[in-house]
C-alpha cells in the first residue's frame, strides 16, 4: 500500500519533542497567569495559544506538508 506519510523512524525524543514543548509552555502559561495580572496575563494567553496554533497549523496545512518526509 502507498504510505506517503511514512517517515524514517524517529527517536523517542524526536517523537515527543513537539508535544513535550507544548506541554511545558501551556503549564508555564497556566501558572504564570496565577502569579500576576496585566502583562503576565497576556504572556500567559500567548503561551496558552501555542497548542491551539499547533493544531490549527496541522489541521489547515496543505497535503504537501503532511507527506513531507524528514530524514
Amino acid at each position: 500500500m502507498n504510505r506517503p506519510h511514512r517517515i524514517a523512524r524517529q527517536s523517542l525524543m524526536r517523537t515527543l519533542l513537539v508535544p513535550g514543548v507544548l506541554l511545558i509552555v501551556s503549564i508555564v502559561g497556566l501558572i504564570l497567569a496565577l502569579t500576576g495580572d496585566g502583562t503576565r496575563d497576556w504572556i500567559a494567553a500567548l503561551l496558552l495559544a501555542l497548542p491551539v496554533a499547533a493544531i490549527f497549523r496541522a489541521w489547515f496545512a496543505p497535503a504537501s506538508f503532511q507527506s513531507k518526509t524528514i530524514r
Binding site: 517517515i7 523512524r9 524517529q10 517523537t15 519533542l17 493544531i55 489541521w59 503532511q66
Partner: peptide
C-alpha cells in the same frame, strides 16, 4: 502518551492522513 510515542515514530507531529 505511552501509546502515542511508539505510534507516532513514523509520523510527523500533526500528521492527518
Amino acid at each position: 502518551v505511552v501509546l502515542y510515542a511508539p505510534f507516532m515514530q513514523r509520523l510527523r507531529f500533526g500528521t492527518l492522513r
